[in-house]
């Protein structure tokens, strides 16, 4: 019996070690995303706040494991389009740089942030509906997608931030409902 107790302790340690390693990988991913955002975007104090949020949330969800981890990494993928769409838009509309966008973002920028977020939100929602733990997956995915997207869209001020959050939530709910109805049909 003593041997099985020792084995149980070792097994638990192995389990936790795997989860901590996953959290460390998530932290490295968050650091890489922040580095990219700092390189390609105008950095404000709000950006650092969202960066800190991502650096705390992503490893915590990865450590938690299961649907939280799956959702967190799916959310990072979903957050990439809103992270890069302002850059693309600046390149197309303002010749690569838009100093005035932070003070008063242009309507196309806000629409682009909302539109891409809503689009990836639909994908997140429909993917969450097929997971074994849809709510946990959706919460984790929307949280990390929003934080990743905010690193890009929040550089356009409050409008951009609201655009990415509202787009993600609206898109996710739509995707979830549509996928749910399709499954029951």
């Amino acid at each position: 019996m003593a041997r099985s107790d020792a084995a149980l302790r070792s097994a638990r340690r192995a389990y936790e070690r795997a989860h901590v390693l996953s959290a460390l990988r998530a932290l490295a991913l968050a650091a890489a995303l922040v580095a990219i955002a700092v390189t390609v975007h105008h950095v404000s104090s709000a950006s650092w706040l969202f960066a800190a949020g991502l650096a705390a949330t992503l490893p915590a969800l990865a450590w938690r494991g299961g649907p939280w981890r799956r959702g967190a990494f799916a959310g990072v993928l979903a957050g990439l389009p809103p992270l890069f769409v302002p850059l693309l838009l600046f390149a197309l509309m303002h010749g690569g740089h838009c100093p005035s966008c932070t003070m008063g973002p242009s309507l196309p920028c806000l629409i682009a942030c909302f539109g891409t977020s809503a689009l990836v939100g639909v994908l997140v929602g429909s993917r969450a509906a097929t997971d074994t733990w849809p709510r946990r997956f959706a919460i984790a995915a929307v949280a990390t997608a929003a934080l990743t997207g905010l690193l890009g869209c929040a550089t356009m001020g409050l409008g951009g931030a609201l655009g990415v959050v509202a787009g993600l939530v609206a898109g996710s709910v739509t995707g979830w409902v549509v996928a749910g109805r399709a499954a029951h049909a």
């Binding site: 041997r3 020792a6 084995a7 097994a11 638990r12 192995a14 389990y15 795997a18 299961g66």
Partner: peptide, 17 residues
């Protein structure tokens, strides 16, 4: 056998994800 059973379960618990 005890060593192997322990090692097998330790590895399995480390790969549960």
């Amino acid at each position: 056998a005890e060593d192997c059973a322990q090692e097998a379960l330790v590895r399995l618990f480390g790969q549960l994800d």
